[in-house]
């Protein structure tokens, strides 16, 4: 029997979708081995447990402590749940907060950790994990025996939708307050900036393949010719070549234009998270193995410095 403990993800009063994906994955692993799936909602709103009550869950534990996210509270609560429930696998989201406590849980419980997984299977003994490396250029299979902490990639799995009738139980934790070394003091949302790229119908998006700041002009020229808006991948914004408001991706904006032209962008998961809902995706890239090719509808395999000037000419 392989019991699973899945830790739900929420932020600032809202459940995050990856929680429903964790239920799907947890159910699958539990079913494969006749085990039970337990959920834990730590510091969540009362209604979260009801909302999350989906088919296949055995018990939903709620832990009430404090207000904001605190990785030490999460770590201590999960360790205490683990001691009581003895699950084989602890599943957490591979979110920014997930990565702020999951490794600490693994360390304290002396368990191996494997992050950002995109497929999982178990026979009750061995866990077979699929994960990417090199920003998605390569996929690997990793095997491990025994118990483990596993973080799962979001927006990768189906979300469990059927309602269930799991028991909802409060779980009392003893938190060592002396051990809370961090405190959250507030939040800030990145301001809108000059244009709202999420409103654009056509986005011409530029990545590190552009090499130098001066070359961004080429992209502006193309955008002018196509009456499109310029957006970018993270390195372009990190370099200060375009403002943060132009960044597409996990930590930038989510865009869903009719047409998204990715120029010199490899298609790392954090970028794709922001643009995969685009109607038509066009990639221009020298590398036929670039992960962006997997989600593109059309692609030019070629040098942007040769292709873009021609394209500008033809678009005028």
């Amino acid at each position: 029997m392989t019991d699973i403990l899945a830790i739900m993800d929420h932020r600032r009063g809202e459940l995050r979708n990856v929680s429903y994906e964790l239920i799907t994955v947890g159910c699958q692993l539990a079913n494969e081995t006749d085990g039970k799936l337990h959920l834990a909602v730590i510091n969540g709103a009362k209604e979260f447990a009801e909302k999350l009550n989906r088919e296949g869950i055995d018990t939903i534990y709620t832990v009430d402590y404090g207000q904001e996210f605190n990785h030490d509270v999460y770590t201590q609560a999960i360790v205490q749940l683990y001691d009581t429930l003895a699950p084989k696998y602890i599943l957490t989201p591979n979110s920014v907060n997930g990565l702020d406590y999951a490794p600490a849980v693994a360390n304290q419980l002396e368990l191996p950790i494997v992050t950002d997984t995109i497929d999982l299977a178990t026979d009750g003994e061995t866990l077979i994990v699929t994960r990417e490396m090199y920003g998605g250029k390569i996929e690997t299979t990793i095997e491990l025996e025994g118990m483990a902490v596993v973080t799962i990639r979001g927006a990768k799995w189906p979300m469990e939708e059927n309602p269930g009738d799991a028991a909802i139980k409060p779980f009392d934790v003893e938190i060592d307050e002396g051990a809370l070394g961090t405190m959250v003091n507030g939040f800030k949302e990145i301001s809108g900036g000059d244009v709202d790229i999420s409103e654009a119908d056509v986005l011409v998006s530029v990545g590190r393949g552009i090499e130098q700041e001066e070359n961004i002009d080429l992209i502006h020229e193309l955008a002018d010719a196509l009456d499109a808006t310029v957006s970018a991948s993270r390195p372009i914004v990190d370099n200060g070549w375009l403002p943060k408001s132009r960044q597409v991706g996990q930590s930038g904006k989510i865009v869903t234009p009719d047409i998204y032209i990715a120029i010199g962008i490899s298609g790392a998961v954090q970028h794709v998270a922001g643009m995969k809902g685009s109607d038509t995706i066009i990639a221009i890239n020298t590398d036929p193995n670039a992960p962006i090719m997997d989600i593109a509808d059309y692609a030019i395999r070629g040098d942007l410095f040769e292709v873009i000037p021609k394209l500008i000419e033809l678009s005028k």
């Binding site: 932020r11 600032r12 996210f69 979110s95 920014v96 907060n97 702020d100 070394g181 961090t182 405190m183 959250v184 003091n185 507030g186 939040f187 800030k188 949302e189 990145i190 943060k244 996990q250 930590s251 930038g252 904006k253 989510i254």
Partner: peptide, 15 residues
């Protein structure tokens, strides 16, 4: 400041 998803930043103090 910790960079969370979708343009949200968290202000945190760490001893």
């Amino acid at each position: 400041r910790r960079e969370l998803e979708s343009g949200v930043e968290e202000y945190t103090d760490i001893e």
